[in-house]
Simulated scan of single mutants.
Amino acid sequence: MAEFEQDLVRALLREQHPDLADLELRDVAGGWDNQQWRLGADLAVRMPRTERAPALLRIEQKWLPVLAERLPLPTPVPVRIGEPSALFEHTWTITRWVEGEPADYAPITRVDAAENLAGFLKALHQQAPAEAPANPTRGIPLAGIQDGFTSALQVIAGDPNAHAAREIWEKAVAAPAWQGPPTWLHGDLHPANVVVQDGTLAGVIDFGEMCAGDPATDLSAAWILLPATSRFFDAYANADEATIARARGWAVLRALHLISIGRNGRLGLPGGKPTWEPAGWAALERAVN
């Protein structure tokens, strides 16, 4: 995973967006596919550092401005686009800064966050156009990623929750498939991709996995992010039993991924995120109980 220096960012700004080049530039911790800096008071710079990241940035650049106006929470809307040049061979983005602490550092504690999340997803989950991006691992029938679940479950082998996790997954796979039109999805709602202020949800970030499909993928956030789920589904109001079952299956899978990536971080392995492990265990506990 590549790491870039501030000097490169400053040079790119002078080359392509000179009116912003003298703003204060500060490193920001975190980031998976993109490295990020805060630019001045209101902006951020995102530069791709994994092989797949440039394509994800192009999705954000094209589609997030289309959706952002109807979303009730702040999002990192692209305001300038950086194009490949002799200095840097990939696209990069200047976005609006979203204020708050990532939820893997400052978990959501207020129960009224359920209404915030439900309102955001109700606004997002509208029918997507035919040209909306597809995603091979988001918004699809869970049976298509059965092998991925079996592999992910090994991270909690021997844990008392393993049996319940498998049961929830099997019920999710067996539930009737989504019958509605593909809706817009964030696709990657987990603690590092939302921000918190005063214990509640204050913004949603990192839309690179945005796609069209089954809204159950995003509804898994009820278990992944919130201290309790009951108020969320009352507020969302549009999820039938089958959709909730699929969403809970997605929640178990996403929790296992968080635990795995977090454990890698605790062990000092490349790409690991230590703060994700406790977030993953908390999500798993909520999903299986």
Rank of each mutant, 00 (worst) to 15 (best):
A2T: 09
F4Y: 10
F4D: 07
E5V: 14
Q6K: 01
L13I: 05
E15P: 03
H17L: 11
H17A: 09
D19E: 15
L20P: 00
E24L: 15
E24Y: 15
R26L: 05
V28D: 01
W32C: 00
N34D: 08
N34I: 08
Q36Y: 06
A44H: 00
M47P: 04
P48I: 05
R49H: 06
E51F: 10
R52Q: 08
A53P: 00
P54L: 13
R58D: 03
R58W: 07
I59W: 01
E60T: 14
W63H: 05
V66I: 14
V66F: 09
L67T: 03
R70Q: 09
P72I: 15
P74Y: 01
T75A: 09
V77G: 00
V79P: 00
V79F: 00
G82F: 10
L87K: 09
L87I: 14
F88I: 13
F88M: 07
E89H: 10
T91N: 11
T93M: 13
I94S: 03
I94W: 02
T95D: 11
W97M: 11
W97P: 03
G100K: 14
E101L: 04
A106D: 09
I108Q: 03
I108C: 06
R110K: 13
E115Q: 05
A118E: 07
A118C: 08
K122Q: 05
L124I: 01
A130K: 03
P133H: 05
P136I: 03
R138P: 00
L142I: 02
L142H: 01
I145Y: 10
F149N: 09
T150N: 02
A152N: 11
A152K: 15
D159W: 13
H163K: 13
A164S: 12
R166W: 15
R166C: 07
E167Y: 15
W169V: 15
K171H: 14
K171G: 01
V173G: 07
A174T: 12
A177R: 08
G180V: 15
P181Y: 10
P181C: 13
T183D: 06
L185Q: 06
D188K: 12
P191Q: 04
V196H: 01
D198L: 07
T200C: 04
A202F: 01
D206P: 07
D206W: 01
C211K: 04
A216L: 10
D218S: 12
S220A: 00
P227R: 11
T229Y: 12
S230I: 05
Y236R: 03
A239Q: 06
A242K: 06
T243K: 09
T243M: 10
A245Y: 02
A247K: 06
A247I: 01
A251V: 01
R254Q: 11
R254F: 00
A255H: 13
L258R: 10
I259S: 03
I261V: 09
R263L: 11
R266Y: 00
R266D: 06
L267Q: 06
L267R: 11
P270I: 08
G271L: 04
A279G: 03
W281N: 11
A283T: 11
E285W: 01
A287R: 05
V288I: 09
